[in-house]
Each structure stands twice: as structure tokens, then as C-alpha cells.
């Protein structure tokens, strides 16, 4: 196991990472981009399916709730590549959370700094065994960096930067 401190990779906690992006939009608008299938499909996913605990599929514009499960599909990839997880938080205002890669919790917090909205993403409980720690830490953080930038671009009225073509592979945009 990698220790959190003074291991061969230096003083680095490999079990979690935090990413922040400043966005020129209202916090509520940024929050809204996380909590419905339609909103997630506008900047993050090709297809998002949320189900309530009884297994009923939520409407495209229906806000998700804690306890819901999800199936996520990405642009540029076939349906065989899908991530399944669970919604952990959705407080209707500034906090949204879900399980992600290997069931790791991801928490999104929104707050204001110098007149802009900060979207803060924390992914924690990442595996820290020597053979896979780097893979999860680097792979997941690199993925989120692109998508948070795309969220900023879309919310600020810019381009949707995602690659949507399956024939284009090995690019950071999908």
C-alpha cells in the first residue's frame, strides 16, 4: 500500500483529489447542470439514465434525488462502455454527490468567490495500492479537468468542446 506521506512518490495523498473551476454564471445555474439527465447531456454525457429506488426511470428534466441510481454513457464510445453508480447528495442548492469510478464518492460543491461561481469537485477514497493508485488518481483527475472546463465553456456561452465522433479516438475531449 502507498502511504499518504513520505512514500516513493513523495508527500502526496493519493486517496483523493480536489479540482476547482471558476465560472461566470450563477451558482444555481451551475448546480442545475448536474441534477437532470438533460442538463448532464448538455456538457458531460451522451446519455444519462437515472432511476429512482423503485427502478422507475426519471424524466429527462426531472431532478434526481439521493438514492437514485444512474447509468452514464459518453460521446465517442459505444454503449458497452457505461458507468453505473448512485446519487449520494442533491440538496437542491449547492451540493451534489455521487459514486463514481470503483464506487469512489465524488462531491460537487458550489460557492461564490470574487463574484464568480466556484465549482469544486472532490473525489475521495481512491484505491492507494501501489499498482493502481496512479492509474485512478491520474486517470480520474485528468478526465474531470476536461469536463469541468467544458462545463465552464458551455455555461459561459462558449462551445461544447466534446468530441462526438466514434471514429476519432485518443483525444482529451472524449
Amino acid at each position: 500500500m502507498l502511504k499518504k506521506k513520505n512514500n516513493i512518490y513523495g508527500k502526496q495523498d493519493w486517496s483523493k483529489f480536489k479540482l476547482r473551476v471558476n465560472i461566470g454564471a450563477k451558482a444555481m445555474d451551475a448546480y442545475a447542470r448536474w441534477i437532470t439527465s438533460a442538463a448532464l447531456e448538455s456538457w458531460f454525457l451522451r446519455k444519462a439514465i437515472f432511476k429512482d429506488p423503485q427502478g422507475n426511470v426519471r424524466g429527462k428534466h426531472e431532478p434526481v434525488k439521493p438514492g437514485d441510481t444512474y447509468e452514464w454513457y459518453w460521446h465517442g464510445y459505444p454503449d458497452t462502455i457505461s458507468e453505473k453508480g448512485k446519487v449520494l447528495h442533491a440538496n437542491g442548492e449547492n451540493k451534489f454527490g455521487f459514486t463514481f469510478s470503483m464506487g469512489c464518492p465524488v462531491t460537487i460543491s458550489l460557492y461564490t468567490e470574487a463574484g464568480e461561481t466556484i465549482v469544486e469537485l472532490v473525489e475521495s477514497d481512491l484505491p492507494i495500492d501501489e499498482s493502481t493508485a496512479l492509474k485512478h488518481f491520474v486517470g480520474d483527475s485528468r478526465g474531470w479537468i476536461f469536463y469541468l472546463v467544458n462545463l465552464k465553456s458551455v455555461l459561459e456561452g462558449g462551445l461544447d468542446l466534446r468530441n462526438k465522433k466514434e471514429e476519432i479516438t485518443n483525444v482529451i475531449t472524449s
Binding site: 462502455i81 458507468e83 485518443n170 483525444v171
Partner: peptide, 16 residues
Amino acid sequence: NLGSSCSSFHALKADM
């Protein structure tokens, strides 16, 4: 392709 890729979440997608 995913195993040597710079794509977003490439390791996660390969694992899926």
C-alpha cells in the same frame, strides 16, 4: 486504444 490513450477517464472506460 484506451490502454495507451490520453482520452478522458481512459482507465475507467477500459475497466468498464
